[in-house]
Structures are given as structure tokens and as C-alpha cells.
């Protein structure tokens, strides 16, 4: 990868990371089964998925870009899938509530006034506990989380590969490898907090009305990632 291509890859990776946060269902009040989504803040959950992706991608760093991207994406998706599965088990057998989308049940999701799950077709309304905004992760939310993690894992792996490409000519391979991993992790954390500002701590994923705010995230992450990419480029290429 050419240095200039790596520069644009860092920006693209950062933007993908930002977008992924909108797709991963998360809600702090989910811890009390009072809202749909995994029981944590969106940014922290996305960061966790991203780290899993980076860890996996780093194992295949010598296998070329496509393998690195695939490795990062699948590891992130696997992490989110397992988290959703564990969350649903805890909800069903621990709290005693079935997975149900609060927004869909109230006819306020992106799919319109339908109260049915967009993928399974199951009606959500009868399963909502009174006084809550849903609980657990129903099929459509699970699907959205997988897509989000796939996007985020790809973005993180892209940043890792791009930074590694820039560092390999100027550092020892072990140092380049580790430093690029941490820089990719840093870019991930920087970009996944910005979207969380638009989500205000809760999202049901791509069927949530907040998905309409994605363009704001896209622009913000593009600007911030461009500045970060420029600093990395200056340090690795210009001041050498």
C-alpha cells in the first residue's frame, strides 16, 4: 500500500468505525432489562468489538489486506454475536423477559407503524413489560448488531493495516506491529465516542430512528479521522 493510499485508508477506516456504532444495539438501562440493547454504552461496546477485531486482524497481518479485513470483520461480528446471545440468555433465564424491541412495539421504528420484527415477522407488542422500552435483543436488533460489528471490524482492520504499512519501512517489525495496533485502537476509540454523542446513550441499531443521524456522524468522523491521518502521515512520512 502506497503512503498516500494508507493516508486515505486511515480516514476511511475511521469513518467506518463511526458508522458501526449506529448499528450496534446498546443501552445503559438494558442492564435492568428496561430497554432494548446490550447492557452498556454504545461507544464502549463498539470499542470492545473493535478490539476483538484488531486482535484477530493482527494475527493475519502478513497475509495481505483482504485477509486482514475479513479477519477483523468476522472477529468483531463474532464478539457481538456472542455478547447478544449471552445477553439474551441472561434476560430470558435470569430476569425472565423475552427479547422485544421497544421502538417497534410502539410503532416508532424506522420500518413505520408496524409492530412486527422486520426479519422474523414476530409481533413485538405483546412481549413488552409495562413501564419498559423493550428488553433483550430481538432478531432484527441481532441482525443490525452483526452488520455494525462487521463494518467496525473492517474499519479497525483497515486502519491497522494502513498504519502498519507506513511503519514497516521505518521501524523494526515487532515495534511497527505493536505500535500500529495501538494507534489503530486509539483511532477506534476516538471515532466511536463521537457517534455516541448523537445516540445519547441508547440505540436499537439500524431500525432505530437515530439511524437517520448517521450523516452527522459521518461528517464528524471524516473530519476527525482526516486530522489524525494527517498527523500520522506527517510523523511517518514527512518528518523522516
Amino acid at each position: 500500500m502506497e503512503p498516500v493510499t494508507a493516508f486515505f485508508a486511515i480516514i476511511l477506516g475511521g469513518v467506518l468505525v463511526g458508522i458501526c456504532v449506529h448499528f450496534i444495539p446498546a443501552s445503559a438501562t438494558g442492564a435492568m432489562s428496561a430497554a432494548t440493547g446490550i447492557a452498556t454504552g454504545p461507544s464502549m461496546l463498539s470499542a470492545g468489538a473493535g478490539m476483538a477485531g484488531l486482535l484477530s486482524a493482527s494475527y493475519s497481518i502478513d497475509s495481505g489486506l483482504s485477509v486482514v479485513l475479513a479477519s477483523g470483520a468476522t472477529a468483531s461480528a463474532l464478539m457481538v454475536a456472542l455478547t447478544i446471545l449471552s445477553g439474551n440468555i441472561a434476560n430470558a433465564f435470569g430476569t425472565g423477559v423475552p427479547p422485544a424491541s421497544g421502538q417497534t412495539a410502539s410503532g416508532q421504528s424506522i420500518t413505520g407503524k408496524s409492530t412486527k420484527d422486520a426479519i422474523s415477522g414476530w409481533d413485538q407488542k405483546p412481549y413488552i413489560s409495562p413501564g419498559t422500552d423493550g428488553h433483550g435483543m430481538p432478531v432484527q436488533t441481532n441482525f443490525s448488531g452483526l452488520i455494525g460489528a462487521f463494518i467496525g471490524g473492517t474499519g479497525g482492520a483497515l486502519v491497522l493495516f494502513a498504519v502498519y504499512t507506513l511503519l514497516v519501512p521505518i521501524l523494526r517489525q515487532d515495534a511497527a506491529f505493536t505500535i500500529s495496533g495501538f494507534i489503530a485502537g486509539g483511532v477506534f476509540l476516538i471515532n466511536c465516542v463521537l457517534p455516541a454523542y448523537t445516540l445519547v446513550g441508547k440505540t436499537e441499531g439500524m431500525f432505530d430512528q437515530k439511524i437517520r443521524k448517521t450523516p452527522k456522524t459521518l461528517v464528524s468522523c471524516f473530519i476527525v479521522s482526516s486530522v489524525i491521518a494527517m498527523i500520522i502521515y506527517i510523523a511517518a512520512v514527512v518528518i523522516q
Binding site: 495501538f182 445516540l199 511517518a236
Partner: peptide
């Protein structure tokens, strides 16, 4: 809307990443 932990992680992500760069 993101929690105190997130802003701490974000702040250090910027500062430490630039120090590492």
C-alpha cells in the same frame, strides 16, 4: 450521554495515540 468513562477513554485515546505516533 456517553458516560464519564467514555470521555476519559476518548481523551486518553487522543493524547496517548499522538504520543505514540
Amino acid at each position: 450521554g456517553t458516560g464519564t468513562a467514555s470521555i476519559g477513554y476518548w481523551g486518553t485515546a487522543v493524547g496517548a495515540t499522538i504520543a505514540f505516533i
